[in-house]
Design a binder for these strands. Structure first.
Ligand SMILES: [Mn+2]
Ligand SMILES: [Mn+2]
Ligand SMILES: [Mn+2]
Ligand SMILES: [Mn+2]
Lengths: 219, 219
DNA sequence: CAATTTTGTTAGATAGTTCTAACTTTTTAC
DNA sequence: GTAAAAAGTTAGAACTATCTAACAAAATTG
């Protein structure tokens, strides 16, 4: 059984993998906030457990068992976040830190019960998909708001970044998932966009913000 | 901040302390399911943290800081058990193992929210008192059913033992907290008691069972 | 009270997760 | 295509939580 530390590495590996499924040691070290030698010894351990492929001086690659292990931890994380928001009244900006701890609880029934109580949600409070019990993750591809054209009508569906600061910024503009936005104009100098919400005056959103908003085009 | 291991030791120390507040190393080793040298080194660590008083060859004694630390972990444990039963539909026999893990989560708001959602409960699903936010524990003294006399009317209020097996035994007899029992007779040979429940035929309860049932005498 | 048993301590080891310092290999830049 | 920079590895150490073996102190018992 994976330790808490191992579970955190697996999660990062899963999220960081490129198209080829590769992750560099230095990037992983930065992500995990530990030194490269620490990562070096941990990847050897993860390899011994059959969760990744490691060859000296090469980027590491999760095995399918590693991916499944990671996805099941991510499932617990996202179910927890959704439970905290939907059943316990937390804001979407408060739940990540708590879920970071609860994801390591070994109690299948506890997460089963959360899942049931919420009617088997498919996404977490930030729009990220919740893997199923077998660790399968449903891929959805939204566009970023930046990629959209003037005149389009879009619905905010997910985020590419869920830092507390960004979530608090979105709260301050009442930008929550499901919100309909109409793209009024795009400034070619700095890529900022002017959008209007239903029942709300128009807003200017910087390129940085537009890059972090994932939307479904509805018109 | 106490590690998970330290928190588990503190909890055991708190629960095992005799009238003088003393706990023997050998008893603690047995309780924690570790060797005596392991306990020996841990009590030195706990002493360094100011949570207990240790002198060679003497039983250890929690300091008031140690007692508070312990009580706050017990608070998290019991709030969790109550939440699992009242808000998530678990049986009282299923919650201890889960709470044993969740009690180590560092997220004051999470437990605050549980407490609020339940309207600040004062006891856990097994009738044990929930310490307050300052680690103060309200002492209640019930009698065991064994101590009661024939003819008395009592209400089941708590348990001296909450093992899964005992809880399952109580489930099988529909003996839950709040149940009114009338003591019909007591067998002097083996101390077994015959009791009748409201809306139920009479039952014989062994001495072992009667010792584990804490009751409030109501008539 | 002396012998035995029980309780507690020390020493030394292991496993997990982390570090820094020193070194090597690979990649990038001129 | 060499030199410098970046990435990765090894060695050696620390800290936590645990163990067993050996020893010492305290408690019990005849
Ligand atoms: Mn999260
Ligand atoms: Mn985590
Ligand atoms: Mn419990
Ligand atoms: Mn515990």
């Amino acid at each position: 059984m994976a330790s808490q530390t191992e579970e955190n590495y697996l999660k990062s590996l899963f999220n960081m993998a490129n198209e080829a499924g590769e992750v560099n040691i230095s990037e992983l070290a930065q992500q995990m906030q530990v030194s490269m030698p620490t990562v070096n010894s941990m990847v050897k351990t993860l390899q011994k457990n059959g969760w990744l492929i490691y060859e000296k001086y090469k980027p590491v690659i999760l095995t399918s068992e590693g991916k499944k292990e990671a996805a099941l931890v991510i499932r617990k994380h996202r179910l927890t976040e959704m439970f905290l928001v939907n059943k316990m009244g937390f804001g979407w900006e408060e739940v990540h830190e708590i879920a970071e701890q609860i994801e390591h609880i070994h109690a299948p029934k506890f997460f089963e019960r959360m899942d049931e109580m919420m009617g088997h949600p498919t996404v977490d409070p930030h729009g990220s998909p919740i893997p199923d019990k077998l660790g399968r993750i449903q891929e959805v591809n939204y566009s970023t708001l930046s990629q959209c054209k003037t005149g389009q009508l879009v619905v905010l569906a997910a985020l590419t970044n869920s830092s507390t600061e960004f979530l608090e910024f979105l709260n301050s503009r009442e930008l929550n998932l499901g919100k309909e936005l109409k793209i009024l104009s795009k400034e070619s100098y700095d890529q900022s966009m002017v959008v209007s919400f239903k029942d709300h005056a128009s807003e200017t959103l910087s390129e940085k913000v537009c890059d972090r908003l994932l939307v479904r085009v509805v018109g």
